[in-house]
């Protein structure tokens, strides 16, 4: 019967999540951002499960009670118009649920878009993460080093990733640390991350970007600040400097392993932010772009008050 099927489906969904031998990445957070989203996801799963169960129970009752084989031959179902009270209930309850989840949504979205609570006072470590077909380049302007396809983060320090792309739109994603954000060619987007537990975390581009998309991955390694500093020193001692010529080669489509350089490509190939933004319009010092969507990404990509966007 129908209900068997429905219960099987629910059972598959929930038990596998609960009793899976390894926790699912998204639900196994290692930082406050991912933890917020994991909590929101659990909350929404529970709320939604209640709705699904109510619908299935109601359906089962209807099917069991009102099936033709249970009724007498001459039973004539009545003509019933809608009832205002019933309809008020079936409108009202969903509205309440949606209102509740709306609050959750807005609140949690603000939370994951800002520096996590308790870390506001620390100066964030800025790392530029740029994608090219099909690699990730990580530039540490402060430390003056650049890595390819792997990134080291100090634990318990806010990290601000600034994302952009040399090519198609990509989506920067370390499931255990934070949700995704797009990296695009003509602007810089930002994502705030704090890693609280040392470890290696899988990261990838989640947005389809062509042939090499499946292997467009990287590793994010969180380690104690002292070890992080040691790592930086080590690189300065051992790695070669990154030249423009070499960087151009790195940009060519293909897959490369992990690489390390001193210096960053930002020196000769600045990120598309501020005066280098794709939406910076040469001669006009004042940007009168009034399109609303456009305005919205500008809002948080350029906190550094580049004057050309002051026209909003």
């Amino acid at each position: 019967m129908k209900l068997k099927l429905a219960f099987i489906s629910i059972a598959i969904l929930i038990t596998t999540i609960l009793a899976g031998c390894e926790p699912l990445l998204v639900l196994d957070p290692k930082g406050p951002q991912a933890e917020t989203t994991a909590n929101v996801i659990w909350l929404s799963i529970i709320t939604m499960a209640i709705i699904v169960i109510v619908v299935i129970v109601l359906l089962t009752i209807m099917l069991v009670k009102y099936r033709a084989s249970k009724q007498s031959e001459d039973y004539e179902p009545p003509h019933i118009e809608g009832n205002p009270i019933v309809e008020a209930i079936i409108i009202g309850i969903p509205i309440l649920i949606v209102a509740f989840l709306s609050i959750v949504s807005v609140k949690s979205t603000y939370e994951v878009e800002t520096v996590p609570e308790g870390y506001e006072n620390q100066e964030p470590l800025v790392i530029y993460a740029s994608s090219s077909d099909w690699k990730w380049h990580f530039s540490y302007p402060e430390q003056d080093i650049e890595t390819l396809n792997y990134v080291f983060l100090p634990t318990n320090r806010p990290v601000e990733f600034r994302l952009y792309s040399y090519g198609p739109i990509t989506s920067f994603w370390i499931p255990q640390l934070a949700g995704q954000k797009y990296a695009m060619a003509d602007m810089v987007t930002k994502i705030n991350i704090v890693a609280e537990t040392p470890g290696d975390y899988a990261g990838r581009n989640a947005n389809f970007s062509g042939e090499g998309f499946a292997e467009n991955t990287f590793t994010a390694t969180a380690l104690a600040p002292s070890e992080f500093d040691k790592w930086v020193e080590e690189i300065h001692a051992t790695a070669e400097p990154l030249t423009e010529e070499q960087f151009d080669k790195l940009l060519e489509p293909g897959h490369l392993g992990q690489m390390t350089f001193t210096g960053t490509h930002l020196d000769f190939r600045p990120a598309p932010e501020g005066e280098h933004s794709g939406h910076n319009h040469g001669d006009s010092a004042e940007d009168h772009d009034n399109h609303e969507e456009h305005e919205d990404h500008e809002e948080h990509e350029n906190h550094e008050n580049h004057d050309e966007h002051s026209g909003h």
Partner: peptide, 8 residues
């Protein structure tokens, strides 16, 4: 539809 969760 929950934006923060959608990031995941």
């Amino acid at each position: 539809a929950i934006a923060s969760a959608d990031y995941q």
